[in-house]
Write a protein that binds this DNA or RNA. Structure first.
Lengths: 340, 340
DNA sequence: TTGTACGCGTTATCAT
DNA sequence: ATGATAACGCGTACAA
């Protein structure tokens, strides 16, 4: 057995033990906090620094059967991910909670079919103890993969086909949309339209449902314009379409603040005054809301809290606690400003 | 509905072998692609489905000494991360390249001192074969930690104290800033100011240097306003400060398009016409640039390509290829529109 | 308090 | 082509 080893090899507990003249078991104990004499502790600390030892987490995971890591999976193709301010806030909220519990959040972005396969392998490979899924679409193939998994999963939002018994956290999109539309009606608006985006997600679809509920018999399908993205420029286009279809429109519910900001531009171009001629409301209470002229009336979405709550749900299941399997909805206060 | 976690053990190769009546070695061979008879292959495939087997990646990593994963570390506290459109694009560019090479990108966000510790442990624990670091500040403690690491690291941007020999990829911030400022001067502007952000990063600091170089002897320190964030509202505030200090200002270089958009608002409030009274240029060529009135002249930053290039650098080192240790700078075309 | 030895699930090197 | 068996680096009962 050769005694000299190439310097490229990483130092192990074995090396530390040899350098300190103590057994490997004791080294492991000082690392994890067991009974060990002060002198041995000092010798080992010196040896660790000397050989430049860092624990091999793969080996540790193998024996302890856990990784102290939680996956945060974002199912957003391309540009959608870049613009959406909510995802970032959810991520930061989740990270703060996980960090406090000494868990590492690993963020995986699924951007292609190939990514789906690889991320599925990753999640089922023991790299993470739990998973948070953000913005899954209905019939997303990854839902089925994760359902088979032994790893506790929590969804942000609830796709229509999410199997029962899987916890989720979100907001009451239907109720919020209904409420803010009703407030818009209460200001005397008669012909109200909607710019809806991402209706293939539960969040987008539910906002349309709430809008429809509020209007009741006065609901007119042609006054709902669907656009693909929660994006400023789609807000412009959506508003132009609405103005085409109904020149006398006097109220607009935009599915996001970015859409509402775009709508404002289109209305300005068309020579309409906001809120005098047309009332406009948005959704999210993002930085857009105070960036427009006039400021937007909108639904405040507690994105950071949603992330924290999702992380908390995962941690509780990791501890074996009972969790509410029916999902939890966070409150969404309406912020009334000048645009309506 | 209460939760009771079934103490079901995950299926292993051993279980598959037992179910198929074949040895573990052969099972491993069909998984990794070795010579194995069709009949054995079929029996094992059936057994895998039957027991619901998924490979334990921790065990595999332990023996193969690699993880097929690359870390993507974002060093951005809180809100900065949410607003910056470049980081998202860099991330997607890196992910596309890594995905093609069948590597998993794991995104780690460092948001606190505690995060720094945990992420350092994670990176040195064998979870990743390589690392990409984004937006490190000068004197960032993680730089020293990573320098000790045996894991190939590539930086996006180059902090001043980045040790020699560590590859990085970025853009020529100094040159781009100098060039666009010169173009601004060429349009006849005499009193030119700058709104600078994040000067504790090389990108921010270099843009100031380029600005100064362009102006030469006409550079006036009081016409550089430093703000903390690349953010719309800081653009507004920065522009107001500039107008205070120099009412006759007729040109502005903003460190980002978001800042420029804010500056536009402040100028509008002050009754100045753009570009008639004041010329404004930005940086990034982000979605902001076409969202303002007038559209922004700006420096196009190839964020996606930067991410792809950084990933490529890591992959090349993983393959043992030689890489340019002096770093690579990607071209930044200037886009001239109506704001100047 | 410390040392010994076994096992975590996999790959890889041998024989066969 | 297939079946044993030795690592990989670590935690931890158990023995001393």
């Amino acid at each position: 057995m050769p005694l000299s080893r190439p310097p490229s090899r990483r130092a192990t507990i074995h090396d530390v033990a040899a350098a300190a003249g103590i057994s490997r078991g004791t080294v492991s104990r000082v690392l994890n906090g067991g009974y060990v004499s002060p002198q041995a502790r000092a010798a080992i600390a010196a040896a660790i620094a000397q050989v430049g030892y860092a624990p091999n987490t793969a080996a540790r995971n193998l024996v302890t059967q856990r990784s102290q890591a939680v996956g945060f999976v974002v199912l957003e193709p391309h540009t959608l991910f870049l613009e959406d301010p909510n995802i970032g806030a959810i991520m930061l909220g989740a990270n703060a909670t996980l960090s406090d519990a000494d868990y590492q959040m690993v963020n995986l972005v699924v951007d292609s079919e190939r990514d789906t396969q690889r991320v599925s392998r990753y999640l089922s490979g023991g790299f993470v103890d739990g998973v948070i899924i953000v913005s899954a679409r209905t019939h997303d193939p990854i839902i089925r993969v994760l359902a088979q998994l032994a790893v506790p999963t929590t969804y942000v939002g609830h796709p229509r086909d999410l199997p029962a018994g899987i916890p989720f956290v979100g907001i009451d999109n239907t109720g919020s949309a209904k409420l803010i539309t009703q407030r818009l009606m209460a200001t005397g608006r008669r012909r109200i339209g909607m710019i809806a985006a991402a209706v293939d997600r539960d969040s987008g679809a539910d906002r349309v449902i709430g809008f429809r509920q509020a209007l009741g018999s006065r609901f007119a399908p042609e006054l709902v314009v669907e656009v693909p993205l929660y994006d400023y420029s789609w807000g412009v286009k959506g508003m132009r379409t609405l103005l085409d279809r109904e020149p006398n429109i006097d109220g607009v519910f935009a599915g996001s603040d970015a859409l509402a900001a775009g709508a404002l531009e289109a209305l300005r171009d068309a020579g309409r005054q906001v809120p005098a001629d047309v009332g406009v409301v948005g959704f999210d209470d993002s930085s857009w809301a105070l960036r427009t002229q006039p400021h937007l009336s909108t639904v405040r979405q507690p994105a950071t809290e949603v992330g924290a709550c999702a992380a908390d749900l995962v941690l509780r299941r990791l501890r074996g606690d009972d969790v509410d399997r029916n999902g939890v909805l966070l409150p969404t206060p309406i912020v009334w400003r000048e645009s309506a």
